[in-house]
């Protein structure tokens, strides 16, 4: 069974599909990593169109109060196991927008971040490093941010509530008709 799980972890590490949440300049650094110069598909990494199909969400730019809601919804719709990468200084500490009234300086207060990529902006080389790092972590079963989120949901939800002033997710039980 352990071997089986290891095999699945290996498969997961070699087939990382990503959802690019491109709010800022970080998006500019993705195409070089995708195209023939670096070719991330070598590692089975592909961009996907919807959160349902994605394994990792890349937050590549500043996070505002408004966009954070979308990030949370997208993250919650992703099937587990799922990972979140804070890409560039903005989601890590606010970057150049650290003193804006609208930006959220630290993403990891609201969602579990599996990997940080520092830089303003991180170049394509750094992106590739990030991907190989993520692959290693997934293969070893170390990227468990989604479990953290489930375990410490109260903490994250409390932070979210403090920021928005209300519960983000409907909890009235009307999940379907």
């Amino acid at each position: 069974m352990a071997e089986w799980l290891k095999l699945i972890d290996k498969a997961r590490s070699r087939s990382i599909w990503m959802l690019m949440y491109c709010t800022g300049c970080g998006a500019m650094e993705m195409p070089p990593a995708m195209t023939s110069r670096f070719d991330m598909e070598r590692f089975g990494i592909m961009p996907m169109a919807t959160p349902r199909q994605a394994d990792v969400i890349l937050v590549t730019g500043y996070v505002t109060k408004k966009t954070l809601k979308r990030i949370i919804y997208a993250y919650e719709q992703m099937p587990a196991p799922k990972w979140l990468v804070a890409h560039g200084s903005c989601p890590i500490n606010g970057g150049v927008y650290w003193d804006s009234h609208a930006t959220v300086n630290r993403l990891d207060l609201f969602l579990p971040v599996d990997l940080y990529v520092a830089g303003c902006m991180p170049r394509a080389e750094a992106n590739m490093k990030m991907f190989t790092e993520l692959i290693d972590m997934v293969a070893k079963g170390e990227a468990r941010g989604w479990e953290e989120y489930e375990k410490n949901k109260a903490y994250y939800k409390e932070n979210q509530r403090k920021l928005f002033g209300y519960d983000l997710v409907f909890t009235d039980g009307r999940s379907a008709l």
Binding site: I8, S15, A80
Partner: peptide, 19 residues
């Protein structure tokens, strides 16, 4: 690669509760 993709996809837990 498609074999890896299928194994990965089948091993995932969907966050959807649909009809």
């Amino acid at each position: 690669q498609p074999y890896i993709d299928v194994i990965k996809l089948l091993s995932k837990k969907d966050a959807a509760t649909k009809n």
